[in-house]
Design a protein around this nucleic acid. Sequence first.
DNA 1: TCCGGTCTGACAAATTACAA
DNA 2: TTGTAATTTGTCAGACCGGA
Length: 350
Amino acid sequence: KKWIDGLKIDSVVALEYIKQLYGLRIRNPKMCDWDLQRRRFKEPIEQYNSAYINIQYLNEGRHHFFVDDRVGRLHTNLTNMQSDVRNFITWKGQPLVSVDISNSQPFLSTLLFKPSFYSTGKGVGEKMTLFSFSGGFSFSFSSSSSYSGSSSSFSSGSSGSRPPLMLQKPLYHTEKEDVKLFIDLVKKGQLYDYLSLAFKRELGVELTDRKNIKAAVFQVLFTDNRFIGQLEAAPKRIFRNLFPNVYDLFAAFKKQDSTFLPCLLQKIEARLILDIITKRISKEKPKAPIFTIHDSITTTMDNLDYVKQVMHEELEQHIGIAPNLKVEYWDGEQVMEKLNARRIEIGLVG
DNA sequence: TCCGGTCTGACAAATTACAA
DNA sequence: TTGTAATTTGTCAGACCGGA
């Protein structure tokens, strides 16, 4: 984006911040971030180093700006940066604010329950249909290619190919109670709260942490269908019990290739944010600086209401339900104070 | 000349972190 | 699950060395 040069990071304070955070973590191993997949704590020094690199790159103006060709997401210095550290960034001296879609993946997934999503034919361009997204996918015949041996499995996404799905009969049972409930919860932004209660009830353990709920939702959306019986798949099983028809639809999308659903959702997200919303903004308000971070858009205070309104309108129009938009003000001082409060809390200051 | 050991550079793959 | 960057580890061919 042409706005990127205006971005400034208060590197002195930001570096101080990550330094203190590092100190806090090595003195209190309990404060280290937990890596769910590996089931161990992350290394504070590694976290410090990658944050350091990101700060320096932005500081020196070493920008990277890249749209990947698999799912079409835009990757920049900002997308790669730790969200805490973003608070120290300003644009031409002005504070920034970001608007993001809360529980964006489940929100986008509700599109799969609309019959119009499966309409074939002339839906061109911006129209949100499965057909319009399937062109770029390479077909995954990895399970059968082992004995076929021929090179026919690489169609490399020719536009005339059919989606790698076999939805013989409609799987989007909109009339089923659990589907209604799922969509309703997403609409109200209460899916995580609902799941949190369910997990607590079923497992008895404290899985109420926001991060854990998010991880559980990702597990449902992204993991292979065969991942269901293991101990670690408990949240997935609970979700299946609560929302059987929702689960089945997701499973159908992952049947041949477990990466199909995640890629599809990311493509939908990229088209909405990059093709539809930011294009409209730059057309209507060419002077408004905007920065995308996957499912969120960052701008200056004076453009906040406008950006919010555009996001709301376009998302509602293309997904079919209104999004819950979360506003976050980038405020370095506040983040710094919060960290200091924690340091005092454990008696580190002095 | 042959053999085994060691070092080096180039590149690939795995691992670390980050984001969603 | 996807993507990014940086770092570490692994692989491999070639150069080098000394002993036989």
